[in-house]
Every structure is written in structure tokens, then in C-alpha cells.
Design a protein around this nucleic acid. Structure first.
Length: 461
RNA sequence: GGCCGGGUGGCAGAGUGGCUAUGCAGGGGACUGCAAAUCCCCGUACGUCGGUUCAAUUCCGGCCCCGGCCUCCA
């Protein structure tokens, strides 16, 4: 089954046909580095990480670019407010971002270009746009001339006419049309700035992605992704700039993930109702559980973030890792990812359906009677998990470390488990139960397997 | 106001014109010294009003409700 992806441009699922099957190219909008990433940001990263992993499986070479926006008015404001150098903020936040996304088990992109390192490319693009009559300089600014592009608005399905009514646009005196947007703006001496043909200034928000995507991926590339809120104006404007500058389409497939909601309301920095990834990690919630929770709804659907969702994600991982632990002595077969798992992902990244198949594989593994059956099911489960960026941990480590620990060290638990085993051997069940109760009070669950082995785990309840 | 999503069993969440996922929670059973884990069985859901159809949760239309974008935001 071929890969189908929902294209915002045209609003329908389409078969994905890369420009060059030998070299698939994807660009995803990355963070503006001034604050910790929240789990909504994490959702986007996880969604495109799943796509990246799937593409790498389907094609021999995939290049994935995710930018870092390190010049922005919000960064300037944060620096002023905190009395801190801009670079200190951007570097620290970038480091945090890498840590948080690593905890979510997201693969690093092939490159993470920084805006500040590509101002030259941006200036060159702006100059071309002026030459071609799609941009104009005015009072130290350079603006994109929206009416110069006939079908502006195609991506976000809005026309300039629609926007006139009730539009809240920034009407500045230097704009020819109220919808024109800034490519370049002047900087005061206390703000970051670069010399340009239009004076010392800094780039507008959208131009960096156009310039960097062109540099790393070429004029036209396969996939451009980001959150739904980037459709307008960010991606609409990128598309406009790039196409007018290069005379060719920017990207062929535009993908947008849906929002995470809290109490049925969008989670966002401006609303202040966000939870950072770091907050959750600090509470002891494993990154893999957060990742799974984010994959439990299809990426385009609205999704409510909840503690219950995290609890369920953790329960799911406990179940899958338990099945793997019970068969720790079985060598996984080299079974490939089953077709139904692959088919689910190839249908616009239907991760919940794919996960349901992982559950079926776990059931098959639990039920398997022969070594051959176990090896087959285990191989299929691991291969599927790995494709989704899951199940890479040692099951023993996961089960012993997935929950909040009680007052006992692992060695103490091991000793008590051994003491209980001794008591059971002599049929001293009173003593055995006393030890078990003691362990339970410390948050340790005992499991006497049919094979005679006793295993334990930190209770997740 | 314009444009765009969504309303599925107690919860999460897929999906389909007739065969009604998957998991969590709940009930029953098997197994177990007791448990836990595991396995088996069970509860029969698709906002609302109409239409099309032999048959609609699934297609079409109206309505209601929730959310998003139109301003920085994944």
C-alpha cells in the first residue's frame, strides 16, 4: 500500500509521490527559542518524527530540516525583561529544547539551521523579490506586495476580499495594502541588526524559513510541516515569498497537526494554560509515556491533554513491556513490521490504529505456546514498536523504573523478594505474605510466573 | 462575519453503507498457597431532526453544541 498524506493544499488525502524517490526532503517549522517547549510543541515534534521514521523506512534517503528561530521580537522582549543577553537565552533554550525532544524519543533532524546564520540568504531573497516587483521598500521596511500575487491565500483558503471584513490587520502607514507583510524591518541600536541595502535591520518572521528551506532542500521540496496555526499567516506567506522569488512551488505536500487542548481549549503560550514537557518529566513521568500519549490520537485530530491520558499511556507501556519481559529469554525473530501496522501508518499516520495492532501483537505474544510462535510475535512487536519510536528500553528497566519509587532501593527489594522465596519454599506462607505486604506498602508488585520465576515491578497505581 | 476541524459505549480512541476495532476502567471465569501478571467471556455506542436506500453511526441536507484560524503561537 502506498503512503497517503493529507495535504492542506487541496484539503484531501493524496498519495505521496516524492519528486525524487532516492532523496525525500522535508522541512518542519521549529521553535522560537525564548521559553521552554510545552507539550503542544511536543505533539508536533512527535507527529513529524513518526513521519520521518516512516519515510526513512520507505525511502533510501530522507533529509529532514527543522529550523531554530533565534531572532524574534519575543526573544528581544524576554532579554529585556530578564536583563539577560539574547544569546544566553537562545542558547539555553535551544539546549532545553534538545533535551526535551530527546526525552520524547524524537530523532534529531538532519540539520537545524539557525535564522541568525542565514541573514545573508534572506537579504538576497528579498532583493530578488523587489527586482521581480513582488516587494517594495518603504521607510526602512521591505514589504511583500500581496496584491502582486494572484492566488495569494490558496493554502489557507482565504481571499484578500474575505479578509477585508473585520480583519484585524496591522495597518501601517508604509504599507500599500493592509495585507502586505514585513520581509525586513529596521532595528534600533539596542536591538539585533544586520546591514542591508535598506539600512541596518532584521528579518521579518516568514522569510527565514523560505531562505533556509531553499538552501538546504532546494527550490521545490516534498513536505512542509507544522502546527495548524502556522497555516496562516506563516506558511501562506512563506509559500508566497518562495514561489514569487523562485518561480516555482515551494513544497508539494503541506502537512499540519491539530492542536492539543486543555479543558477543551487550545493550549498556548499566550493563553498561559500550558504544561511544559520539562514539568512532566520533573514529575517523574517517563518521556516514552508522554510520547505514546501524544500518539494516541491521529495527528490531525484535536486532542485533549489530560493526566488520565498519560496514565493510560503508561498502562499501555506497562502491558507491552510486561509481555516482552515474560519472554526475555526468547530471541526475537527477525520478523518485519506486520503489514497492518505499516498500512495504518501509511494511511496518513494513523497511529492509534497502529497502536491497536501492537496490542494485538502483545496478546499474541502472551498467548504464544511454542518458542517459534513467541519469537515471531516478539519480533513483530519489537519491529513495530521501533518504527513508532517505542519499546527501545530494557523491559526490566522500564518496569522497575516506570513508577514512583517507594522507600526501598532495588537491592533491598531484591533481598526481600529472596526472603519471601525462602519462606515459600518451606511453606511458611504467613511469613511470605508478611514480606509481600511489606513490599506492596513500598509500592512493589510481586509476580510469581508459572515458570517458577518471581518478578517484581514498581506499581504504577 | 468569513474559512476550517470535531461531536462514537463509563473513559480514551479507530473505523465502516449491512459482518459493530483496540486499550483503560467495571463484572464473571481459568490459573495461583494467597496474590499479581496472563488468558477466556460479558456490557452492544455512534449529537439532533429529516432525506436517499432493502439497509445509515457510516451518504445528503437542516439544526444544536464544542474547538481552531482570520494578531504572536505547534
Amino acid at each position: 500500500m502506498p503512503l497517503f498524506l493529507h495535504n492542506t493544499l487541496g484539503q484531501k488525502k493524496q498519495e505521496f509521490v516524492p519528486l525524487d524517490p532516492g532523496h525525500v526532503r522535508m522541512y518542519v517549522c521549529g521553535p522560537t527559542v525564548y521559553d521552554r517547549a510545552h507539550i503542544g510543541n511536543g505533539r508536533a515534534v512527535v507527529a513529524f518524527d513518526v513521519l520521518y521514521r516512516l519515510l526513512r523506512r520507505l525511502y533510501p534517503k530522507v533529509i529532514y530540516i527543522r529550523n531554530i528561530t533565534d531572532v524574534d521580537d519575543k526573544i528581544n522582549a524576554a532579554a529585556k525583561e530578564r536583563q539577560e543577553p539574547i544569546q544566553a537565552i537562545t542558547e539555553r533554550t535551544t539546549r532545553w529544547y534538545h533535551e526535551d525532544m530527546g526525552a520524547l524519543l524524537a530523532l534529531a533532524p538532519d540539520a537545524e539551521p539557525r535564522a541568525t546564520e542565514h541573514v545573508g540568504e534572506m537579504i538576497a531573497m528579498i532583493a530578488v523579490l523587489i527586482d521581480k516587483g513582488n516587494a517594495y521598500a518603504a521607510q526602512g521596511h521591505v514589504l511583500f506586495d500581496v496584491p502582486s500575487m494572484k492566488d495569494y491565500g490558496a493554502l489557507s483558503r482565504r481571499s484578500v476580499d474575505d479578509m477585508v471584513v473585520g480583519a484585524r490587520v496591522d495597518v501601517a502607514p508604509y504599507k500599500k495594502s493592509p495585507f502586505d507583510f514585513v520581509l525586513w524591518k529596521p532595528s534600533t541600536p539596542d536591538l539585533p541588526g544586520w546591514d542591508s541595502p535598506w539600512g541596518r535591520g532584521r528579518p521579518g518572521w516568514h522569510i527565514e524559513c523560505s531562505a533556509m528551506a531553499k538552501k538546504y532542500l532546494g527550490v521545490t521540496f516534498d513536505i512542509h510541516g507544522g502546527g495548524q496555526d502556522l497555516v496562516f499567516p506563516h506558511h501562506e506567506n512563506e509559500l508566497a515569498q518562495s514561489r514569487c522569488c523562485h518561480g516555482a512551488e515551494m513544497a508539494r505536500y503541506w502537512l499540519h497537526n491539530g492542536f492539543l487542548q486543555i479543558d477543551s481549549e487550545k493550549m498556548s503560550k499566550s493563553l498561559g494554560n500550558f504544561v511544559t514537557i520539562n514539568d512532566l518529566l520533573a514529575e517523574g513521568i517517563p518521556g516514552e509515556a508522554i510520547r505514546l500519549a501524544l500518539m494516541s490520537a491521529q495527528y490531525r485530530q484535536p486532542m485533549d491533554f489530560s493526566r488520565e491520558g498519560l496514565r493510560q499511556a503508561r498502562a499501555t507501556l506497562d502491558r507491552l513491556y510486561t509481555a516482552l519481559r515474560q519472554t526475555a529469554d526468547v530471541n526475537a525473530g527477525d520478523d518485519d513490521v506486520p503489514l497492518d501496522v505499516l498500512a495504518a501508518l501509511e494511511d496518513d499516520l494513523n497511529t492509534p490504529l497502529a497502536l491497536s495492532h501492537l496490542h494485538e501483537l502483545a496478546t499474541a505474544l502472551n498467548k504464544a505456546a511454542t518458542q517459534a510462535e513467541k519469537a515471531k510475535a516478539k519480533g513483530a512487536l519489537l519491529a513495530s514498536g521501533h518504527l513508532l519510536g517505542l519499546l527501545a528500553a530494557d523491559p526490566e528497566v522500564w518496569l522497575r523504573g516506570s513508577a514512583k519509587k517507594g522507600g526501598l532501593s532495588e537491592a533491598e527489594v531484591d533481598n526481600l523478594v529472596r526472603a519471601r522465596a525462602e519462606a515459600r519454599k518451606t511453606k511458611n506462607f504467613t511469613e511470605a505474605d508478611r514480606v509481600k505486604a511489606q513490599l506492596k506498602a513500598a509500592g512493589v508488585e510481586i509476580e510469581d510466573a508459572p515458570d517458577g520465576k518471581t518478578r517484581w515491578r514498581w506499581s504504577s497505581k
